[in-house]
């Protein structure tokens, strides 16, 4: 019995020693950094974008960086609890849109957490109609609405997928006051459910993405599944930065047709609404400033080297680096603008 116990104790010490001896990188981050993301999917854009950044960070800092797809609620809980910099979070505009839309599980991120550097844009957020739809473009859809026809839009409620719908509703409110009620949300979940809503004839317009829906736009018109882009919410300058090949067989030039100023959804009567889905870090409020600086510095160097931009563009992300301080101010302003839109619709 005694011998066994001693054996166990010895072995335990050995493992201890092993684990602590390997910490040697010249960074204040622990040897094993964990990035939790606000999505539960390891096949989605948040994971993919984070994996690219994590790999670059691991190389730069000489530490292990691991991405865990724990989902929004758990990720927020984790970074609220852990302040020593061993866990940081990556998410996108949903972090504050969820709060603005009053979703359960979201707090005001500017108060509850610290906003870290931004890294990339997914320019793919899109709206599509069926290929044989009577509506050619966003303007016709909004005019139809103004004429009293219900236009049903399949979205996932409460965030990124809904913001374009809210913007259209807002534009109708400005241009045809009192008619915004004719734009109706069809609340669906996954992309497959949104597509299905269109196939079932339950939606006239669906939220989708360039990545997931591009091939549907190339199907022959007599195919029940065929779709047509009518609007990409990304800014013109954002799409300009994409690789000229675009996505699939749809080139950057073709994508630019569906972007402001070719598509006009007014934000306030004078300028057009655009929405870039941007990925950024979030930290515990109390995390050491030294760690924040170190991460900013590491990312600055990574983006200066120019390698990561190519990787990002190959995966249809647009590089979008801002150090923490700049990033926080930027997202505060962005959130304030969207808040105005959402308030005006209440």
């Amino acid at each position: 019995m005694k011998k066994t116990m001693i054996g166990i104790a010895l072995a335990t010490c050995g493992i201890f020693g092993l684990a602590s001896a390997t910490a040697s990188a010249d960074t204040s981050f622990p040897n094993n950094l964990r990035i939790v993301i606000g999505s539960k999917s390891t096949g989605g854009d948040t994971y993919q974008n984070t994996a690219i950044v994590a790999e670059a960070l691991a190389r730069k800092l000489g530490i292990n960086v691991k991405v865990d797809a724990v989902g929004g609620s758990t990720a927020f809980n984790t970074i609220s609890r852990v302040s020593n910099g061993s866990v940081i979070m990556m998410f996108h505009d949903q972090a504050y849109l969820g709060y603005l839309y009053g979703q359960k599980g979201y707090e005001n991120p500017f108060e509850a957490y610290r906003i870290g550097p931004s890294v990339a844009i997914n320019p793919g957020n899109a709206y599509l109609v069926s290929k044989n739809s009577p509506y050619k473009n966003v303007e016709e859809l909004m005019t139809a609405c103004a004429g009293g026809t219900d236009i049903r839009v399949a979205i996932q409620p409460g965030g990124v997928s809904e913001i374009g719908y809210s913007a259209m509703k807002n534009a109708i409110r400005i241009q045809h006051p009192g008619r915004e009620g004719c734009l109706v949300a069809v609340n669906r979940g996954s992309q497959s459910d949104k597509n299905q809503a269109m196939f079932d004839g339950l939606a006239d317009l669906i939220n989708g993405s360039v990545q997931a829906n591009e091939q549907y736009t190339r199907l022959p018109a007599d195919d029940q599944k065929a779709m047509r882009f009518v609007w990409l919410t990304a800014g013109n300058a954002t799409i300009q930065q994409a690789n000229p090949e675009g996505m699939g067989e749809t080139t950057r030039e073709m994508l630019l047709q569906y972007v402001d100023p070719n598509v006009s959804v007014t934000q306030d009567g004078s300028r057009n609404f655009t929405f870039d889905k941007e990925f950024f870090f979030l930290f515990n409020k109390e995390m050491d400033q030294k760690l924040v600086d170190e991460l900013d510095q590491a990312l600055t160097e990574i983006f200066a080297e120019g390698q990561i931009q190519q990787t990002q563009k190959r995966s249809f992300f647009i590089p979008d680096f801002r150090p923490s301080a700049e990033s926080e101010a930027y997202f505060r302003d962005k959130a304030a603008q969207y808040e105005v839109i959402l308030k005006s619709l209440q």
């Binding site: 335990t12 493992i15 684990a19 094993n32 964990r34 691991k66 061993s86 866990v87």
Partner: peptide, 17 residues
């Protein structure tokens, strides 16, 4: 586990006893 962040040592050290 929090003493050795993200190493899984909390699991290892507690599983043995």
């Amino acid at each position: 586990g929090e003493l050795f962040p993200n190493t899984g040592l909390g699991f290892l050290l507690m599983s043995i006893p």
